[in-house]
């Protein structure tokens, strides 16, 4: 088989796997969306109020929090994975929670990775709201609460972009969830590929394990196509909101 045939054969089989709705592939995609989606929602619920507090309130240690967030935006995922792993193993301080190698541990790791990203980008969007907008709220008789609502409204597309950036990061992240999730699937094989249904196996972690098996690359190619399609969709959405801003 020539190298071109090898690639074409892999691609054709990959599309067959996707369009036949192979349960192994579907379960991996489901875990990815569930883990990254939940982590992003929880991170947004923390990050948006935090970014408003940083933009509107003066409190001791504010600069330290901003420095922490800026550092957090570039945190190496494997470091976060290691940190959460050490915390969650049975002998660790949070071992009693008994969530290591579960989607909950993966959500926690991605929450820590994504929260600073959404906070940092949201904070920039809120700070970009002209001071004159806030002063106009006050001069028209608005309260501080009205000013915050106006800032939220003016920065809304920037905040949506921040959430989508966080989701994109979570979906493509591999290091942290590989360590705390363990890339686990049920034993057995479905449709002649992979193993059983995914427990903590995501698109990214499955690509690493399926690629390292060698031989037939159609499964990791199929997973890669889905991952890229998801990321592309998130980015297209982010572009749409950036254009509307």
């Amino acid at each position: 088989m020539s190298s071109a045939d090898f690639l074409v054969h892999g691609l054709i089989k990959a599309f067959e796997l996707i369009f036949s709705l192979n349960p192994y592939i579907l379960s991996i995609t489901g875990v990815s969306i569930k883990v990254s989606g939940t982590a992003t929602i929880l991170a947004a619920l923390t990050a948006i109020p935090l970014s408003f507090a940083l933009a509107f309130l003066n409190f001791r240690g504010k600069q330290a929090v901003i420095t922490l967030i800026n550092t957090g935006m570039g945190l190496p995922p494997v470091f976060v994975g290691l940190f959460i792993f050490v915390m969650l193993v049975p002998a660790g301080p949070l071992g009693f929670a008994d969530i290591i190698f579960t989607p909950s541990a993966m959500i926690l790791a991605q929450y820590i990775l994504v929260t600073p990203i959404i906070t940092g980008i949201s904070l920039s969007a809120i700070k970009a709201v002209p001071k004159s907008i806030i002063e106009t709220v006050y001069t028209l008789g608005g309260s501080r609460k009205d000013a915050i609502i106006a800032a939220l409204s003016e920065a809304r597309f920037g905040i949506i972009t921040a959430i989508l950036a966080g989701l994109g990061r979570a979906l493509s992240e591999v290091g942290a969830i590989l360590i705390v999730g363990g890339n686990i699937a049920e034993t057995g094989s479905i449709g002649g590929i992979g193993e059983g249904l995914s427990k903590t196996r995501t698109l990214t972690t499955a690509i690493t394990s399926e690629t390292s098996k060698g031989g037939d690359f159609s499964t990791p190619i199929a997973l890669g196509i889905i991952l890229i399609t998801l990321n592309l969709s998130v980015n297209l959405l982010a572009n749409y909101f950036q254009r509307r801003d």
């Binding site: 004159s132 106009t136 001069t139 028209l140 008789g141 608005g142 309260s143 409204s153 003016e154």
Partner: peptide
């Protein structure tokens, strides 16, 4: 009411901008 030299315009419709002071 203070009218600034360069007005700050909310990213909304003309109606919603004008209605703002009444809404609050």
């Amino acid at each position: 009411s203070l009218l600034f030299q360069t007005p700050a315009i909310f990213n909304k419709s003309v109606f919603e901008n004008v209605a703002y002071g009444l809404k609050v």
